[in-house]
């Protein structure tokens, strides 16, 4: 601060400059839509039923906000899993108007519909209402060994960290954004018919580690995925990439992975 308390030039507040910054007044949209929530408890019910709630929304209201409003003010028993509310944890995947999406990452305004139907994701076992079990996906993820396999270690005495060039990182960084939300597995047409298929999530993660030049477990992983219910079960419908909320593009990873098995890539 300069002598006399005046701010240096360039640091004056808008009022000091005699100008008034104008902010656009945000007006509530006052729109209302009908939220249809699938209710089903496999222990008690025989078939799913849909509960309908009128929910008012603004242009920034997410589907998760609407579900939580229904849960807080209408029916406390609605089963929904969520955590971060910012598309980081991958907990709130569900079918929204027939397509798998993250509820916290989907705005009602972008759905362009007066009725929003939420159901549990397909191709997963249902636990209750909107909550599905991830055990199978996680066990498949573990099966493809989602870690760097090497004989030596970064923390062994006498070794330093394994250096990589930015170009080396670019080869796999896209696939390391996976949050394991399961949307890709839910959209996959092969997963819809084959319960033993590894799935786009697991296959894309296999590529992520095989493409990492610090890893030496390529042969181990290729052996795991080189089967009918592995990489050859993918028919490149591309739906996994279509629904991925993090831009992972599993379909691309799977096709690039095939290159290793067909001998185009080393």
């Amino acid at each position: 601060m300069t002598k006399g308390g005046a701010l240096p030039k360039g640091f004056e507040s808008p009022s000091d400059l005699g100008s008034q910054e104008k902010y656009e007044e945000v007006k509530p949209s006052s729109k209302t839509m009908t939220l249809r929530i699938s209710k089903f408890n496999p222990d008690k019910d025989h078939a799913p039923t849909f509960l309908e709630f009128p929910v008012s929304y603004e242009k920034w209201t997410t589907v998760l906000d609407a579900i939580l409003e229904a849960k807080n003010y209408h029916d406390h028993s609605i089963g929904v899993r969520y955590s971060c509310r910012q598309a980081m944890c991958g907990s709130c995947g569900m079918n929204i108007n027939g397509k798998p999406r993250l509820a916290c990452f989907t705005k009602i305004s972008e759905l362009d519909s007066d009725v929003v139907t939420v159901e549990p994701m397909n191709n997963f076992p249902l636990i209750r209402d909107l909550v599905v079990g991830f055990e199978r996906m996680f066990s498949t993820h573990k099966r493809i060994k989602p870690y760097i396999i090497r004989e030596d270690s970064e923390i062994s005495s006498g070794t330093k960290e394994f250096l990589q060039t930015p170009e080396d990182v670019e080869k796999y960084i896209q696939f390391s954004s996976c949050i394991k939300c399961g949307l890709c597995n839910s959209a996959c047409p092969t997963m819809a018919a084959d319960s033993t298929f590894i799935g786009p999530q697991g296959l894309a993660q296999a590529y992520r580690y095989i493409a990492d030049n610090r890893d030496q477990g390529k042969d181990e992983r290729l052996k795991i995925i080189d089967e009918r219910h592995g990489i050859w079960g993918c028919h490149f419908a591309g739906s996994c990439s279509q629904v991925c909320p993090k831009g992972v593009d599993p379909a691309m990873g799977i096709q690039l992975l095939r290159g290793y098995l067909l001998g185009y890539r080393k």
Binding site: P42, D43, N122, L126, M191, A193, H235, A237, S239, Q242
Partner: peptide, 29 residues
């Protein structure tokens, strides 16, 4: 008790929701 939400052959219905690639997948089958 868990109920499997496998989409099965119903997954082939309404291919347009996932874009032209899914339509091509459906037509190919």
């Amino acid at each position: 008790m868990e109920k499997d939400r496998k989409e099965g052959i119903r997954g082939m219905a309404n291919p347009g929701r996932y874009g032209i690639e899914r339509v091509a997948y459906w037509l190919m089958r």
